[in-house]
């Protein structure tokens, strides 16, 4: 069940990526429509983060290509925003919340230019959107996990991008933060922005996303949530890893699936 679309925001063609000669993504071929709020779902080690990293050109591809708005990444970099995994940086770094959020403006500034008042204002209003404006002067070492994630989202918001890639934005955050983040993503989506999220929690998939990619080394499915998020396809994605998977499908239907995967 792989549904291709016309004029996609994101097109991945025959993508294969390997670490140390061992493939981690195999022949992934998909398109995502403009304005989709899309979840990438799959078990641990399925290559979800790798998929995002290869879209952002952070790791070398073995074959295939990625097009964003029918162009190469380098031509549309300013329209793209990336939120890495929260754990990928050192939060003891000597910097303030505002310093970090301002980074989102660096790509527009270019070499030799320093951030100006307009950049500061953009950073502050992004912080307001994520409910962190009171923390602008705070050192990042003092933030909780949820606050760190909000700061990362604020940094992405200052970029005013057309497409957003978020790597596990809901991992290890409090319920209030999760709610705030998904609300912001839904708002962006309603403004016609495309959003791609690596996601773990099967229970919330149906309420969060209108497009779902099921991934496990190879692409299992890509399409509208109602068509893709079915017990059969989930079983195919999680494979032998969950023999309880037939049960998972039932649970998802009943809305009683609480097993959040351990990090």
């Amino acid at each position: 069940m792989i549904q291709q679309v016309e004029n996609p925001a994101l097109e991945i063609h025959d993508l294969t990526v390997s670490y140390d000669k061992k493939p981690v993504l195999w022949g992934v071929d998909l398109t995502i429509p403009n304005g989709a709020l899309c979840g990438i779902i799959g078990p641990n080690g399925a290559g979800k983060s790798t998929l995002i990293k290869s879209i952002m050109d952070l790791i070398p591809l073995n074959s295939g290509y990625v097009k964003l708005f029918d162009q190469d990444l380098d031509e549309v970099r300013k329209k793209i925003s990336y939120v890495p995994q929260r754990e990928s940086v050192d939060w003891d770094f000597p910097a303030s919340v505002l310093d970090i959020v301002m980074m989102g403006r660096y790509s527009k500034l270019g070499l030799f230019k320093r951030p100006r008042k307009a950049d500061r204002d953009a950073a502050l209003s992004a912080l307001e959107m994520v409910g962190m404006d009171k923390y602008a002067r705070r050192q990042i070492a003092q933030l909780s996990g949820g606050q760190q994630q909000r700061v990362f989202l604020a940094r992405a918001l200052t970029q005013n991008a057309e497409i957003y890639f978020l790597d596990e934005p809901f991992a290890g955050v409090d319920a209030a933060t999760e709610k705030a983040i998904i609300q912001i993503l839904k708002n962006l989506s309603s403004q016609g922005k495309t959003i791609v999220v690596v996601h773990h929690d099967l229970q919330s998939v149906e309420t969060y996303f209108d497009w779902v990619i099921l991934l496990n080394l190879r692409l299992v499915a890509s399409g509208p949530t109602t068509d893709v998020f079915t017990p059969q396809l989930l079983e195919e994605t999680y494979g032998g890893k969950l023999t309880l998977l037939s049960e998972v499908g039932e649970l998802v239907k009943k809305g009683g699936f609480h097993a959040r995967e351990k990090q």
Binding site: K53, M56, D57, L58, D74, R77, I80, Y82, P84, S88, V89, D90, F93, A95, D99, I100, M103, G104, Y106, S107, L109, L111, F112, R114, P115, R155, Q159
Partner: peptide, 22 residues
């Protein structure tokens, strides 16, 4: 002084720096 922001961003978050073209 001249390249403070480039040094700052590549030190704190090299992946993000690469993603935005630094």
């Amino acid at each position: 002084t001249v390249f403070y922001k480039e040094l700052f961003i590549t030190t704190f978050d090299p992946d993000f720096a690469n993603a935005i073209g630094i």
